[in-house]
Amino acid sequence: MTIDQRLAELGITLPQAAAPVAAYVPTVEVGGLLHVSGQISFAEDGSLMKGRLGDDVDLDAGMAAARRCGIMLLAQIKAALGSLDRVERIVKLGVFVNSTTDFTDHPKVANGASELMVEVFGEAGKHARAAVGVAALPLGVAVEVDAVVAIKA
């Protein structure tokens, strides 16, 4: 089964890869690795998923925002590689959570993106990860996720 078939089975439609909003490129391929710039939380309708965990965004909404970041990561990976079947392994995700100082469920929020990678790639979707809280994120979004991906030779 191809990854596109797996996405269809999961009911996931990839959006168009988002254009950079500042002075960077979406991806850089070097040494067999694809480094994917941070992707912010866009809802399915294209609107921004804004807010702060521990304040006006609850845990479920935070996990959903992280999942949407993961879907945009997949769109960026496909745009860069031409096919998600070229992914050998998701190596690492970095998850940034816009949160209050007393919010401590960053790992649970990050699971929204992490679980998506396993759903899509199976064992190859299991990865190392960092999940951190930050005082603010671009455009006021709730979550941002970046990735390092090993590419099949």
Score class of each variant (00 low, 15 high):
78 K>W: 02
12 I>T: 04
113 A>E: 05
118 V>F: 04
144 E>V: 15
143 V>D: 02
94 G>A: 14
116 L>G: 04
96 F>N: 15
22 A>C: 14
121 F>Y: 08
81 L>H: 03
80 A>D: 03
79 A>I: 04
2 T>Q: 10
18 A>I: 01
91 V>E: 15
2 T>H: 10
149 V>Q: 03
77 I>K: 00
83 S>Y: 09
15 P>S: 03
133 G>F: 04
88 E>W: 08
74 L>N: 01
109 V>A: 09
48 L>N: 04
40 I>F: 08
130 A>C: 10
39 Q>K: 13
58 D>Q: 11
10 L>F: 07
118 V>D: 01
44 E>A: 09
152 K>I: 06
15 P>Q: 02
56 D>V: 14
51 G>M: 08
83 S>Q: 08
134 V>E: 09
53 L>K: 05
84 L>D: 07
42 F>N: 02
15 P>V: 00
62 G>Y: 03
86 R>P: 06
24 Y>G: 09
67 R>C: 05
118 V>E: 04
41 S>L: 11
12 I>W: 00
57 V>L: 14
96 F>H: 15
27 T>K: 13
90 I>F: 02
82 G>Q: 08
2 T>D: 13
109 V>D: 09
107 P>K: 07
139 L>Y: 11
50 K>V: 06
27 T>Q: 11
109 V>R: 10
59 L>V: 12
83 S>L: 09
104 T>S: 09
76 Q>N: 13
122 G>T: 13
